[in-house]
Nucleic acid binder design. Structure first.
Lengths: 93, 93
DNA sequence: AAGGATTTGTGCGTATGTATA
DNA sequence: CTATACATACGCACAAATCCT
């Protein structure tokens, strides 16, 4: 289950500014993929907003909207002054 | 109870999306009433744009257009990074 | 204890795109 | 074509919490 197919599928690793999907949704999908593949590990911080802005060349508003999606999905938790951390799978809401 | 019954109150407290007046003008009227009745007090901030969006279920552009009217009327002053504040009555332009 | 750097939280300023009446 | 309304996107500024020196 999860996001579907277990076989190879092309997961976007770059942001398409002219794509059909809004940039913040693309970024959310990108980060979700990194979490699901373990590239961003549980209880570890994801890159800071300023880093994500640099890496993907987007504004802070876009970064925060993307992270907001992951927060609503319960995938990450943001802590003021510390960072945004990947939740372990068994984390209760 | 709820919204104050059906008294002869000419001041709208809700937004009518199908009303004759544009939503942003309705919202401006609503906020102006709250200021004049002292529900929004001088030198105090009015609810943030994001709050007004949630409360009245309108978009940001609509909120900003409403506030723009109050600014032109000299009722409030918006300060970037801080908020939008009710001007005291004796405030000079 | 004090100060600075980092990071998230909040809020306004502005511009553009899309849809509708 | 214009006015209204919402969504997206970037920028700037300040507050609050945390961390480090």
């Amino acid at each position: 289950m999860g996001h579907g197919g277990g076989h190879l599928r092309s997961v976007a690793v770059t942001i398409d500014h002219d794509g059909a999907l809004p940039v913040y949704k693309q970024l959310a999908n990108l980060l979700r993929g990194q979490i699901e593949r373990g590239e961003l590990r549980p209880n570890r911080p994801i890159p800071a907003e300023s880093r994500l802005m640099q890496i993907h060349e987007v504004g802070r508003d876009t970064v925060r909207k993307a992270i907001a999606i992951l927060r609503e999905e319960g995938l990450v938790i943001a802590i003021q002054g510390r960072g945004t951390f990947v939740k372990p799978k068994d984390e209760a809401e």
